[in-house]
Amino acid sequence: MSLQRVLVTGAAGNLGRLMRPRLARPDRILRLLDLAPLDPPAPGEQVETVTGSLTDPEIMAAACADVDAIIHLGGLSREDEWSRILAVNIDGTHTVLEAARAAGVPRIVLASSNHAVGYRKVGEAGADGLPGESTPRPDTYYGVSKATLEALGSLYHERFGMDVSCVRIGSCFEKPADVRQLSLWMSPDDCARLLEACLATETPGYRVMWGVSANTRAVVSLREAQEIGYVSHDDAEYFADQVPPGELPEYIGGAFLETPLGQANPL
């Protein structure tokens, strides 16, 4: 049996921890990279671990050796000072892509964010929802870093033929926490389904898509994700009676629009 080796950056982060058991397969080795400690392998889980920063070119060169695909989840996950956003999220993504190019890795999935288009108005695209390919309107330095991640992915596809999927994640937690997340939530199981679709698509290209579940209150489109085979099984509406009452924000970015630029945001 031929084994597929997939490098996952940010494997010790919240999303990395959610995805690790869901991406494990008998025919796959997960190479897990993070600065933080990683949990030991579960029974039957095939993993390799790399301790280090995705901003370190030598670490990334070693991590990319003999890899079939990369799922890039690493980086700062909220607003922070510009120098840190630049070093980790922007320069770090360039380091990951350049290491992948040098190693001949053919496919990479980049974790983008709704905050790349945070200043898009909810409902501006009509009933079909905001397309995944909408041009950026970032709401923070963090959002700028995700728009830049998408642009770097486009460059590496066009220049080097790498298959690049940029996933604008809404909110991926076990369950939605507020009214906004009833529209933008993606269940962890659906997230894994979308990542698998990105890894399996037979048509190499560059694509930007929304990472959300098939929510009853959806304000974004699943068209681009569905075009590569993604089928959502979940809906945030199941949790609607557990969410505090409130109003859907005017803008996609929600409370991030009120975050002072460069200040760490606990959201």
Rank of each mutant, 00 (worst) to 15 (best):
V117Y: 01
E250H: 04
M209L: 14
E237G: 02
S134F: 04
A99T: 00
G126A: 12
G52V: 03
G132A: 09
P266K: 06
V220F: 12
S134R: 01
D91S: 05
G123R: 10
G254P: 03
P21I: 04
T49K: 13
I85L: 04
N114E: 10
D68M: 01
E158A: 01
D190P: 08
P136C: 12
G129M: 15
S221Y: 07
L199F: 11
E174G: 11
H157T: 07
S145R: 08
G13C: 07
I169N: 04
V219P: 12
G44H: 08
A61H: 03
D178Y: 06
G16I: 06
L97F: 00
R25N: 02
S77Q: 06
M1D: 06
E196P: 06
C166G: 13
T148F: 10
G153T: 03
R78M: 06
V179S: 08
G143Q: 10
T216E: 14
C172Q: 13
T148S: 14
D91W: 04
S145L: 10
L7E: 02
R107M: 06
Q4H: 05
V220Y: 13
T201M: 09
L222E: 05
G75I: 02
L110R: 02
D91V: 00
P131R: 03
P249I: 02
G161P: 08
V122W: 11
E150L: 01
V67P: 00
Q46S: 14
A99Y: 00
W82L: 08
I85D: 02
G153K: 02
